[in-house]
Design a protein around this nucleic acid. Structure first.
Lengths: 189, 189
DNA sequence: ATGGTTTGTCTAGTTTTTTAAACGTGGTAC
DNA sequence: GTACCACGTTTAAAAAACTAGACAAACCAT
């Protein structure tokens, strides 16, 4: 959970094939600063770290993006997907089936859902507080997607991608069910 | 791109209903520190910022994850997907078609691909250096997935999810093409 | 009103980070 | 060999962040 700023910076720098001095010049700091940060002998100010990362280049968000979990199970058969249906069902007019890939999302940064929206299905207006993105592809049928003020109808093969903090809504006003795959990152934390 | 650390901290603190002093006590810093940070009159060291955020509580990753651009385009029709085919093609035996949702991945944290693996297609062993996760669903056909030592064959409706830093490989030794959707986070800068 | 409390801001002094320049090491050319 | 570079590390001085405490404004109860 707590992570080693120095080790992370060193790993990134070396992975990019940069020397401390090369990076220092590109970042607008001295090589000594980078040396000390990498040894965790000082804790850089956000201002300094930002400068250093601009020389890579990498955003602060990327730099602090969470560690890797141990992934034991990799492949999930259709019957192994976790049904998330109940939660959403209460807020919805039609039936929505959400089947999640991978049961335990703790330590995960990616949530993938196999979704079915029956005729009449409606998620209502949704909006996430934390930063995350959401995207997907329509496999079968049609769906109406509203993001902010924008309303779009997606058909087979159509895709979408947006920031989850914008208010959004999925609705199936058509007579055929709609099957899609969606991905969301990060699920939480 | 650059974000206002002070404004972000203030927004979070106020959203949690904490005063500068309350947060200061929980974080183990002084209220003055928080005041100065919020006014952007000094740039906190990572060590200090971590302490402050622990009092909220919030991870550094979450704190910096709010660097998000305005998402203009949301829906992408099949012909609007960006062809990434050429790159991979060189390393592959069979043909692999990768169609990316959303053209510009800068400032994006989610990459969604609509993929087709023709018979004989093979990505070869791949392995990403930075932390990220990869998952997907098979829409049509079959594909062989190798992650680490594990080899699995996925058919229609089967899904997968793993850490991209593990060496992995997609291969289609079958006679029918395989169509799938995959999601990856974060896409390499 | 009045006193007590809480709010955010500010200042002087201390601590920490950052700079600039030197140091030691390992490689390479001559 | 030895005269270079380029590398990461170290150090004293300069710069910036942090602390402790004071300050005024706003709020609430009496």
């Amino acid at each position: 959970m707590d992570f080693d700023v120095g080790a992370r910076l060193r790993a990134i720098r070396e992975e990019k094939g940069l020397s401390q001095r090369q990076l220092a010049i590109r970042a607008g700091v001295t090589n000594g600063t980078i040396s000390l940060i990498e040894q965790n002998r000082n804790s850089p100010s956000v201002a300094s770290l930002r400068k250093v990362l601009q020389g890579i280049p990498m955003s602060l968000a990327e730099f602090f993006a969470s560690e890797m979990p141990e992934t034991e199970k990799i492949v999930f058969r259709p019957h192994e997907l976790v049904e998330l249906t109940t939660e959403i069902q209460k807020r919805s007019k039609g039936r929505i089936f959400l089947r999640q890939v991978g049961g335990d999302l703790r330590n995960r940064t990616l949530q993938i859902l196999h979704e079915t929206y029956e005729p009449g299905a409606d998620t209502g207006r949704t909006m996430l507080q934390h930063a995350s993105e959401e995207g997907g592809l329509v496999i079968e049928g049609r769906i109406e997607l509203t993001v902010g003020d924008q309303i779009e109808v997606l058909g087979e093969g159509d895709t979408y991608l947006f920031d989850s903090r914008q208010p959004h809504r999925f609705r199936n006003p058509f007579s055929e069910p709609c099957i899609m795959v969606s991905a969301c990152t990060p699920p939480y934390l």
